[in-house]
Design a binder for these strands. Structure first.
Lengths: 148, 148
DNA sequence: TGACATTAGTACGACATCGCACTATATAGT
DNA sequence: ACTATATAGTGCGATGTCGTACTAATGTCA
């Protein structure tokens, strides 16, 4: 493969890394003190996808080690934004449920982000991002499969 | 702004976050034990852009706190992949220079990554990534300016 | 020039991430 | 049913990240 192509792929992932950092900082600025993007991500996932998932299923969805998720969930449970219940279908496992406070927490965070989102929509254009989304999904899917 | 648009922007940054995680893991699998993506990123930047930059300039380029970079540079210096010298133009500051070992380290890492890159190029297509790169750069630039 | 504000880098502490090892439960093979 | 293997979750330790506070050097403005 040509150096030019390799360099382009490098720059692509480089930009992705910086955007991840900046967008995470932007999100965390809208969260109450002591909460991180990882907490929001869990609440958002439980809302968007479904309640009652197991920690391991979520760890796979986020591509993080399960020990990392244990820690994140402990923080959310302590703040009473989620509840951990036994999994009736598997004694080893647990299910994670949102509390009312957890739902409200997520909604508040999203409300606080609307001005940020509006700025992005105006300056970048939602359509351009929508056009690029399938590419990102393809790359994510490929990288996920490639890691054996 | 419509919920649909906000949701799309959310999904965009969500994919970016997961890709960052997966690509970092892929890179770190190709580095000698004990070295992280942050180390490679510094060596790569010094090679691609220029030697002799100050730590602060690099922290800004990567959008990380300067304390984080201090730690990363300490690791690289201990491994003798970089040299820190006084900045003749500013007594408070230092300049970071690659050593021969540092240049070789980077080249080895890149060599190890070629098969990964080839897989991406084949499965995703370099052209699609090239087409999306300007969008990523625009988003990165906007987020950088928006954080005041 | 002198007083004050600003900036580069670092020491330190708090905490998030993550690998390893362990327990409890479930599954497979006989 | 019994044994061996695999899986879900967690405790613990190591280390990376980053905020705060500090020192040294520079810039500013009267």
């Amino acid at each position: 493969m040509r150096d030019e192509e390799a360099g382009l792929i490098f720059r692509f992932f480089n930009e992705v890394g910086i955007i991840e950092q900046l967008s995470r900082t932007m999100l965390e600025a809208r969260l109450p003190h002591g909460f991180l993007a990882s907490h929001f991500t869990v609440l958002n996932h439980l809302t968007r996808v479904k309640d009652g998932q197991t920690p391991l299923a979520m760890a796979r969805a986020f591509q993080v080690p399960k020990t990392t998720l244990t820690h994140t969930l402990a923080g959310l449970e302590k703040a009473e934004l989620i509840e951990m219940r036994a999994n009736p279908a598997d004694g080893r496992s647990k299910c994670v449920w949102l509390t009312e406070a957890g739902k409200a927490f997520r909604q508040d965070a999203i409300s606080g982000l609307t001005s940020d989102m509006a700025g992005i929509a105006e300056q970048i254009g939602v359509e351009r991002m929508a056009d690029a989304l399938p590419l990102l999904t393809d790359i994510r899917t490929y990288l996920d499969k490639a890691r054996d």
